[in-house]
Design a protein around this nucleic acid. Structure first.
Length: 661
DNA sequence: CGCCTTTGACCGGCGC
DNA sequence: GCGCCGGTCAAAGGCG
């Protein structure tokens, strides 16, 4: 199998994994605990929803799997229709309509903004997915969830058992009516059914376990591949063009055009983003681009690579659920560093070969510190959150607060305190348009292990964003360009650690910056009515600036997503579609891989955190029912970037491991 | 006592 | 060169 095929293959699995991550329930045990750190289900209703989602997700997984195999059989043909796999996955979702407009480019930077909004009716009856680019491109997908939705939302407050029953029932149907047979007699039948259901449950559990194993394996494989890729790229690095393409990724969740934040948000947010961009650009100069990884390029190069080598390098990382789950900051799992290193090296290929070498030598960790890329990646997440901050599973210490111009709401600055010296920082600010939405921007990579939960969240979000972005970018040349242009895409080191947000291969074609926004709202966030329920008596906006952190920044232990998660519902279909598209389109594929990698890598960190370079990953809390993820990634490769140079302080950074911990 | 938040001051980048 | 602005620092105070 060629490297190409292998990567494709792996990526498919990754995608499936991502989807799964996005729907943790898939991995749920009967107990209701979710693997990968998703452990709380807010209420019964949600639990039920998740159950149903589980099925859907499973279906998607299957389809993905099928997709995955097809390529193998076909010899990795990449021409399949994009709709292909997606359609299968989405079949229960109903029709899909998409529309794209001409994209426009701003100024010399070619900034693109892509907003992806997933709107889901509260009852889950309707899913609407919109893709919008800043330039005015617009794509929409409206989906009518099939039976799945209904089952979930019927409002009965069945407890776990009830949920199980439902699930079982669905499973049964899916399986071909195992339990359908005859059942007129109530009592006996009921018992039969019950037993059957239990059996089903068992089966499902087992299946879940298997899937998990597969996922783990896939992740490991993928990681290995990356390592190889990095090594491979290292060599050719010399050849690379030094030019840095700036990739600015932004996954911003604006409530979409729709209402709330989405519409208004752009302004304030855009400002903010602009600021970020600017900042990243400015500060990054010293070390740029290393971080930018031309994923596509890498892939291309790697395509020739042999699997065998992989075997050689293969190492038993355990990037399993935990790793995957790793959160935003990237858990300290060692794997992450390596992955990062690899990525770095890849990037280096674009501009700094030396750095790459170092990275490789160091095993990734040292290298990082050594070579700070200029890239600056930020991820901002928008979450409908009542508290002053959302709990992302990390501990944060507030070190400043300031009122930013244009938004009366003070912006709070937090620093990760999980580990001393952790470079990760985050900014939290209320959305001007919709005070219920909390915009959190993460910068840097954790140099320590993070709570699993966070990771899962990040992964999920990332995945969704990735696919959406891919989808959206399709029209634009960005992704595809990546393949053509070496440095266009950026790989985030977050991959293994995954806490982070996923970085989408930037839409920047050459040197331009691209912004992408991802919004995932479980329910349409736009209207205030959708706001998460507030405690009686509380002010409409409990999250006053000085309001004590409820769940988040304070270092709460409770996973931010615990608050909700329904928002996830829509993702499956969308993801599935995207997956299909990705698989069919080489360019997309590359982008997807990049995204996936980013997802899992989550942590690169420090290098990114450094002034010169920055990477951002953001995942924020999930408000009950309303899940809004706004991630902004900024990748910047500074022209002035020098391969070997990197900010001294960064060295300490996370991945280098020197200072870690 | 240690950790965290608050808050004014300081610093650096950017635009004019 | 100056002012604006965002981001960070660090002293002071609060809380457990």
């Amino acid at each position: 199998m060629t490297w190409d095929n292998r990567i494709k293959d792996e990526s498919s699995l990754l995608i499936a994994l991502l989807i799964r991550l996005r729907h943790p329930d898939i991995d749920l045990d009967a107990s209701g605990e979710v693997a990968l750190g998703f452990k709380t289900i807010i209420n019964q209703k949600e639990a039920r929803s998740m159950s149903s989602k589980k099925k859907r997700a499973a279906a998607i997984d299957l389809s993905l799997e099928a997709e995955r195999r097809r390529p193998e059989e076909e010899g990795g043909g990449g021409d399949r229709e994009a709709s292909d796999g997606a359609a299968a996955a989405a079949e229960e979702d109903g029709d899909v309509k998409q529309r794209e407009g001409p994209k426009e480019e701003t100024g010399g930077e070619e900034e693109k903004v892509v907003e992806v909004v997933v709107d889901q009716g509260e009852d889950g009856s309707n899913e609407e997915i919109k893709y919008r680019t800043q330039q005015g491109d617009m794509m929409e997908e409206d989906k009518q969830p099939a039976a799945a939705a209904n089952v979930d939302d019927d409002g009965s407050d069945s407890d776990g058992a009830g949920a199980s029953a439902e699930e079982k029932h669905m499973v049964t149907e899916a399986t071909g009516g195992e339990g359908d047979d005859g059942g007129d007699s109530r009592t006996p039948m009921a018992q039969d059914e019950l037993s059957e259901m239990q059996e089903e449950m068992e089966r499902m559990k087992e299946e879940n376990r298997m899937l998990r194993r597969v996922v783990d394996k896939t992740v490991r494989d993928y990681y290995e591949l990356q390592m190889k890729l990095a090594a491979y790229q290292q060599q050719p690095a010399a050849a690379d063009e030094p030019k840095e393409t700036e990739v600015f990724l932004s996954l911003g969740a604006t409530a979409a055009a729709s209402a709330g934040c989405g519409g208004g948000f752009p302004e304030a947010k855009s400002k903010e983003q602009a600021a970020w961009r600017r900042r990243s650009v400015g500060s990054d100069d010293s070390d740029d681009g290393k971080e930018d990884l031309g994923l596509s390029l890498s892939l291309g190069a790697s395509s020739s690579y042999d699997d065998d080598q992989k075997a050689v390098e293969a190492r038993p990382h355990d990037v399993d659920g935990a790793a995957a789950a790793a959160m935003i900051g990237g858990d300290g799992s060692r794997p992450a560093p390596r992955g990062y290193a690899l990525l770095e090296s890849s990037k280096v290929q674009g501009g700094a070969a030396p750095a790459a070498g170092e990275l490789a030598a160091a095993g990734g960790i040292a290298s990082q510190s050594v070579n700070p890329a200029n890239r600056k990646t930020r991820v901002s997440v928008r979450v409908r959150c009542q508290g002053p901050t959302m709990n992302d599973g990390c501990q944060w210490r507030k070190y400043g607060q300031k009122v930013a111009k244009g938004n009366p709401c003070p912006r709070a600055y937090y620093r990760c305190t999980v580990a001393p010296g952790c470079p990760v920082r985050k900014q939290v600010q209320r959305c001007l348009e919709d005070m219920s939405i909390l915009v959190t921007t993460y910068e840097g990579t954790h140099n320590h292990p993070l709570p699993v939960g966070a990771t899962a969240m990040a992964s999920t979000t990332s995945a969704a964003a990735t696919f959406m972005l891919l989808s959206s970018t399709t029209s634009s040349s960005s992704v595809s360009d990546a393949s053509a242009a070496p440095s266009s895409s950026y790989l985030s080191p977050y991959l293994l650690n995954s806490a982070s947000p996923l970085l989408m291969p930037g839409a920047t074609g050459g040197g331009g910056g691209g912004m992408q926004h991802l919004n995932l709202f479980g329910n349409s966030p736009s209207s205030s009515s959708l706001l998460a329920p507030q405690a009686p008596g509380s002010s409409k906006y409990p999250w006053s600036p000085n309001h004590p952190p409820l769940a988040g920044a304070g270092g709460n232990k409770r996973p931010f997503w615990s608050a909700g998660g329904d928002g996830d519902k829509p993702a499956p279909a969308a993801l599935a579609e995207n997956v299909g598209a990705v698989m069919s389109d080489p360019n997309k594929f590359s982008a997807a891989i990049a995204a996936a990698i980013n997802n899992f890598m989550g942590k690169d960190g420090e290098s990114s955190s450094g002034k010169s370079s920055s990477k951002w990953g953001v995942v924020e809390s999930l408000p009950p029912h309303d899940f809004c993820v706004d991630a902004v990634h900024g990748l910047h490769r500074d022209p002035g970037f020098r391969p070997g140079s990197r900010p001294p302080e960064e060295g300490a950074g996370a991945w280098t491991g020197s200072t870690q911990g």
